[in-house]
Design a protein around this nucleic acid. Sequence first.
DNA 1: CAACGTTGTTTCAACGTTGTAAACAGCCGC
DNA 2: GCGGCTGTTTACAACGTTGAAACAACGTTG
Lengths: 349, 349
Amino acid sequence: MGERVGASLRDIARLAGVSVKTVSNVVNGYARVSPETRAKVEEVLSQLEYRPNLSARNLRQGRTGVIALALPELDAPYFAELSRFVIDAAAELRWLVVIEQTDGSLERERRILDGVRDHRVDGVILSPIAIGADELAARTDATALVLLGERIHDGPADHVAIDNVRAARDVTEHLIGLGRTRIAALGAEDNAASGTAPLRLAGYREAMAAHGLPETIATVERYRRDQGAAAMAGLLERAEPPDAVFCFNDLLALGALRTLLSCGLRVPEDVALAGLDDIEDGRFSTPTLTTVAPDKAELARIAVDLLKQRIEGPADHPPKEVGAGYRLVARESTLGRSPARPRPAGPGR
Amino acid sequence: MGERVGASLRDIARLAGVSVKTVSNVVNGYARVSPETRAKVEEVLSQLEYRPNLSARNLRQGRTGVIALALPELDAPYFAELSRFVIDAAAELRWLVVIEQTDGSLERERRILDGVRDHRVDGVILSPIAIGADELAARTDATALVLLGERIHDGPADHVAIDNVRAARDVTEHLIGLGRTRIAALGAEDNAASGTAPLRLAGYREAMAAHGLPETIATVERYRRDQGAAAMAGLLERAEPPDAVFCFNDLLALGALRTLLSCGLRVPEDVALAGLDDIEDGRFSTPTLTTVAPDKAELARIAVDLLKQRIEGPADHPPKEVGAGYRLVARESTLGRSPARPRPAGPGR
DNA sequence: CAACGTTGTTTCAACGTTGTAAACAGCCGC
DNA sequence: GCGGCTGTTTACAACGTTGAAACAACGTTG
């Protein structure tokens, strides 16, 4: 198995009675090739079902046509959804995407930064958690790099993200607007060198400060449902439990929701709940989840675009930062549900 | 950007005062190299931070070290979770995984089958939906292929899956064991040439027939939450609505759950609900979801193993089919919940 | 001590592709 | 009938790697 049946340019050339280079020219649409020659070659090409050998082409051109997408974990819905868009955006450039998982570990992020396991890739899109700006600045590997989902201003690399501070402020304002006063933030991280947690925390604080409300902050280690559930349990044990919780992402919120419901609390009557990410789960949970919906398709498209510019553009242009859009989507977990309907209805998109 | 700083074997050879081939031998641990030469070469290697150029190596060896994983959609949690395991299993062989999405479209599955967009990959793991056994048998491309998640007996390619028929029967038996009698199957597909739907339907039927119970079957087009919600709504409109529903996967079940709850029905008191896949969402929904948990890590490992044998083994060995384990996980959506606890508790794994 | 293995190293060619430069054919104008 | 031009095609080399075969320097052996 695996024996390459593929015809090479040489095979085509032989059959068409022309030189290898002429075939190459036809294949690439290059140069001036006479109509008759072109026709003859194309005849043979399709007859032998010629497929270029990309290893060879890449060797020759120094490009691989493959980029890496390095994420903390593919099985977090947000990243899975984002990946889909990245793959689609890359496909338009005929790029392939290999996915690497860092598990948020510093060591694995480092390894990504200096080469994807020796495979040459043309560029890397990294969603960083552990690695810091200084270390990024110091990296030696010349592979094009775009940071995704966080925003280190004046950082050492191109990056794209939504305005996390403002988004967090919007959510918090939304909760405040409901009349809640004991609003907790769930999802601060202790050890994150980069990542979005500090930004979202800052947005929360701005809003709370603006209204003279007291802060309550629950920390987690990872953005996962179980951590959200546990942190929520912790909040409920406090002397003055919150009447609203802004979870730094939807997974945490869904974990928190589980805890609230299994404690017999009503959402949003007893505790209003909001997340961030707009993963699909939150559109079908009961209650449905209020959240911030980043424009994932835009994020992906911009990331790929930036990478393209890095790869093809002049070597030296300064790092760019680009913002992507988002919108606040208020759903049942803050607004309350409409009364039980005899006729079923799906949640809106 | 992207200028390759990388030192080549030639550079190393020059500096170490040996031939290129000797450096190659050192790098590969091959052949007999004298300790002194080896030391000298390794010195230079690490000094110049040598990295093999895989494009060249692959060109020479006819292998790329890259496999493709072709899935309907990456943002379906089951596939995201599975992908993570596949990537991990492949990483152990130092393989890279590119992910391709078929969206369940026949045309895109076909395209995968005869080459991943011209990039040479050593093998393909395909989770087929639309494509049929006959077409698989007829394919000409020599790339190693493993089918994942379905089981066409005596099919034309290696495949790995759980025993879908038995799993579906187990779930149905579980529902029957609860005393339910109007048990619906949700998730039959009209147009699936392969895929697991027919197998799961068969299992459901076996169980129902064995107990002399009437069948109720709701069809969907895709395995997504919205389709589950809509199909459930359809079931509720019937003259005799079901008192239990076996959804052919967890996403459908979560969609169905949404519909049930928003109609004011209680789960499991009014309608018991079970899914299949054991995605994480179902461990944190309220109620938590009874499901079948396929051993995803095992599925992934076997798939990669089969691929490895195909790629490295003799050309002609007959297609193998391997089963992976699963277990039934009964949770609140069929067993009912323990009464509201003042102390929160996470759902069991 | 000559023929022979063993060990370490090198030379050579090839994988399939494309950029460069040069060769070639046809044609015009003189 | 020759120089020069245009347009088309070709030969060659190179990208970085590795298998096969050749080679040199040994120590063994009959």
